[in-house]
Structures are given as structure tokens and as C-alpha cells.
Computed example of a mutant assay.
Amino acid sequence: MAFSKPEKIMEITVENGGKKTKYAPLQTMILGFEAGAFIALGYLLFIRVTAPLPVELQGLSSLIGASVFPIGLILTLLAGGELLTGNMMAVPLARFAKKVTTRQVALNWTLVTLSNFVGAVFVAYFFGHLTGLTETGPYMNQTIQIAQHKLEASFLQAFLSGIGCNWLVAAAVWLSYGAEDMAGKILGIWFPTMTFVAIGFQHVVANMFVIPAAIFAGQFSWIEYLHNFVPVFLGNAVGGVVFIAMAYYHSYKQKEDHLKGKAIVQPIMKSGSRY
């Protein structure tokens, strides 16, 4: 499986980050909806796989669930989608390289946040609530327990958890850009994503599914969800911007050659001058 060196991955990521800001708003919203739904479906799969496990296998439930969750990010990156956590790395990297403006970064994040939320809540309501996939038997208990655990975290805990999450998710996106074939991209995405899920870090888009799913089941409130959304969003932003985009930009950017393009100025001799 062929792959690119980090210096080349940075160039690819800068290019991709710039392209993301050039999409028409409707295109961004459609792709954002797809990504939000894909992540939600990955989380729904997590719940459906882990909830029925017998008590003696509960210790393995996190690992088992984490091993299937990455399907959401794989679909987003390979089939097509605009995911907030990935854009929190790629678009700022293009900004550091002066390919886009701060306004373009802010607009992209806003459109993708809104469309990711709509996609995730769509899955939570229509598949989780109306179809009953998160509101029957052990599945409902699992959904509520997961949401409760996330909502019980303090602001600082949720913020730090968000940093850890997007440090890994942004790394997964970085690796996928560096792989040159589909198998390599899947492997690059799979393991960092599986790691953040198994650890239990908080992902702002994944939470857009599981907490509303619990709300639709009659638990918790939208105000409680908002109290979780803010620190996780901020933590994910720091994880993507600082720990991947900024770190790798300053590590792998091309060093400026101060002599490149610098004209060599020769003294102008006047006619008849003597030295």
C-alpha cells in the first residue's frame, strides 16, 4: 500500500482544506448532512452491537463497539461528506498556509456544524425514535447510559475529552489523505477512530446523535445537550487546530529561502567613473 510522506500529506491537506471553502453553500450543506448521518449510523451500529452483550462480555463491549464505529468516518471520507471535526483540521491548515481567509474558515465551520446536526438528528429521530432502534429493550438502556455519561462530565472534562477525540480523528483524516489506495485509507481511518471510541473521548458530531436519541426517548433536555455541546465543540476545535494542523504546519512547512528571487544589485557606473 503506497503512502505519502508527511510533507506531502501537508500539501494535500492544504489543497483539500482550500477546496472545502470553495464549495457552494448548498453543496456544503448536502455533504454535511451526509457526514452527520454517516457518523450517526456508525454510532447506531455501536449501540446495536454492544447493547445485547451478556454481562460476562461487558468488559469487551467498548472494544467491540469501537471496532465497528469507524464505518461512519470511512463513509464520510471515501464516499463523500463534510465532517466538522475533519474540517477543524484541514480548513485551518489551509488558513495557516494563507490559502483561505479567517472568514471562510468561520463560514465553513458554521455551515458544516448545522448540516452535521441535521443529518445526525435525522438518524436519531427517524431510525432511533420512529423505527425504535434506540428505544426498545437493552438498546434504550444503552443509549440513555451513554448520553448520561456524556452529560455528567464537567465543562473541563468535556473540553479535555474533546481535545483527545479530535487529536485522533484529525490524525485519521491526515492518514487517509496520505494513503494512495482505498485499503490504505480505510486502515488509516480505522485505528485512530477505534482508539478514540474505545477510550471514551467525546466527539461533537457523534454526540449530535446519541444525546438527541436519548432526548427523543423522554430523557434529558435540549438545554442539557447545549451545556455538553459547547465544551466538546471547543475541545474538538483545539484538538484539530492546535495538535494536528498547527503542529504539522510548523513542522513540515517549506522553509523560506531568503535568497530566492532576490535580485543581485550591481553598482551603476557612470560614464567615465574610475576605481
Rank of each mutant, 00 (worst) to 15 (best):
A2D: 13
F3K: 08
F3N: 07
S4C: 10
S4P: 04
E7W: 05
E7N: 12
K8T: 13
M10V: 10
T13S: 11
V14K: 09
K20S: 09
K22Q: 15
Y23D: 10
A24Y: 09
Q27K: 14
T28R: 01
F33P: 01
A35C: 07
A35E: 01
I39D: 01
L45D: 02
F46R: 03
V49A: 08
L53N: 04
V55M: 13
L57C: 11
G59M: 08
G59W: 10
L60G: 11
L60V: 11
S61A: 15
I64W: 02
I64S: 05
S67T: 12
V68C: 09
F69D: 02
L75T: 07
L77F: 00
A79P: 06
T85I: 09
A90G: 05
A97P: 02
K98H: 15
K99I: 03
V100A: 00
V100L: 03
T101K: 06
T102P: 00
T102V: 08
R103D: 06
R103W: 08
V105K: 04
V105C: 07
W109Q: 05
V112L: 03
T113G: 01
V118F: 12
Y125A: 09
G128F: 04
H129Q: 10
H129W: 07
G137E: 14
Y139E: 11
Y139T: 07
Y139K: 04
Q145R: 10
Q145S: 14
Q145H: 12
Q145E: 14
Q145T: 14
Q148I: 04
L151M: 05
S154Q: 06
Q157G: 10
A158Y: 05
A158T: 05
F159P: 08
L160P: 01
I163K: 07
C165A: 07
Y177N: 10
M182Q: 14
K185A: 06
P192E: 00
P192C: 07
F196C: 00
G200W: 09
G200F: 08
F201G: 02
N207S: 07
F209G: 09
A214R: 04
S221V: 07
Y225R: 00
Y225P: 01
Y225I: 03
H227M: 13
H227Y: 15
F233L: 15
V238N: 03
F243A: 08
M246N: 11
Y248K: 14
S251D: 09
Y252L: 14
Y252F: 15
Q254V: 15
K255T: 15
D257E: 13
L259R: 10
K260R: 14
G261C: 06
G261M: 05
A263T: 12
I264W: 11
Q266P: 00
S273E: 15
R274C: 12
Y275I: 14
Y275A: 13
